[in-house]
């Protein structure tokens, strides 16, 4: 499993994601209390922990859907949401922020497909409107992406006519259409019926094998053990424990990790 660290050896110095003391409060409620972690190029990191531990919030900070209260967060060496000049931070204009988001794909728990567009149109929307690529080219690569997630024959279906697992696979294809360098998965299988979880995890495994850098918030410990290069256990806004999934899952060192794992495993 640790073979993935060799990937992208050319630019090994700059981590894909670097979080330093990331803090986030909603009013007086401090959800993240200083998260420091690093995700290497090509690494698959699973974030696990009880609900309310701040996993999703941290993930949303990475593409600036949430604004940090304190700390620094950079993706591929680029500070997220701010420009730094002369030792001062300048808030980014929405245009610059959305430029950063193009390179970061995100998959949501509730899919969030555009219901008024077919699967194909969902996948084509961002490359067409955001990148302004020619339609014929976008369509052929969108069909290719749908085939890649096993849905070539569902291209003209509206989301309402697809199962949850199919919808989530379309959502993955939609995120991939922007050719991101980082993929964020926010509990991608939590809203699915148990028998549909496998098809989504399989697509994600495929992505991991191709060397995509991924951060996955999940409760699927089997997936974490099999696919992840690192596992981070979060609780109450702090990283309690991290390491190789096999080690953390087999021999958790902290009492909180032990308590959590005893409930989910």
């Amino acid at each position: 499993m640790s073979a993935t660290t060799v990937r992208g050896a050319a630019s090994v110095e700059v981590p894909m994601v670097l979080a330093e003391q990331v803090t986030k409060s909603f009013g007086s409620n401090e959800v993240l209390k200083g998260i420091t972690l690093e995700v290497k190029r090509g690494e698959v990191m699973c974030l696990v922990g009880p609900s309310g531990s701040g996993k999703s919030t941290f993930l949303r900070c990475i593409n600036h859907l949430e604004v940090l209260s304190a700390g620094r967060l950079s993706v591929d060496g680029e500070l997220i949401g701010y420009r730094e000049a002369n030792g001062k931070l300048y808030e980014m204009a929405p245009k610059e922020a959305s430029k950063q988001r193009r390179d970061i794909g995100m998959v949501f728990q509730r899919f969030n497909l555009f219901p008024h567009m077919t699967a194909l149109q969902n996948v084509m929307e961002a490359p067409l409107r955001v990148k302004g690529l020619p339609k014929a080219k976008v369509e052929s690569s969108a069909r290719e992406l749908l085939a890649r997630v096993g849905l070539a024959d569902r291209a003209d279906y509206y989301p309402a006519h697809l199962s949850g697992g199919q919808q989530q696979r379309v959502a993955i294809a939609r995120a991939l259409a922007m050719e991101p360098k980082l993929m964020l998965f926010d509990e991608p299988t939590s809203a699915l019926d148990p028998e549909l979880v496998g098809e989504v995890l399989d697509v994600m495994k495929g992505l991991a094998k191709e060397g995509m850098t991924m951060i996955v918030v999940t409760h699927e410990m089997g997936f974490a053990r099999e696919v992840a290069d690192s596992l981070v256990f979060m609780d109450a806004g702090v990283v309690v424990e991290s390491g190789l999934p096999s080690e953390v899952l087999a021999n958790p060192r902290h009492a909180r990790t032990q308590a959590f794992l005893s409930k989910v495993l």
């Binding site: 890649r148 199962s163 496998g198 399989d202």
Partner: peptide, 23 residues
């Protein structure tokens, strides 16, 4: 329903990169 594309996950290596459902 999406039943025909349901794929049972197999634990272990040797998974194909892309799982093509039996269409």
């Amino acid at each position: 329903t999406g039943a025909i594309t349901g794929v049972v996950p197999v634990v272990g290596s040797g998974q194909p990169t892309v799982v093509v459902p039996p269409t």
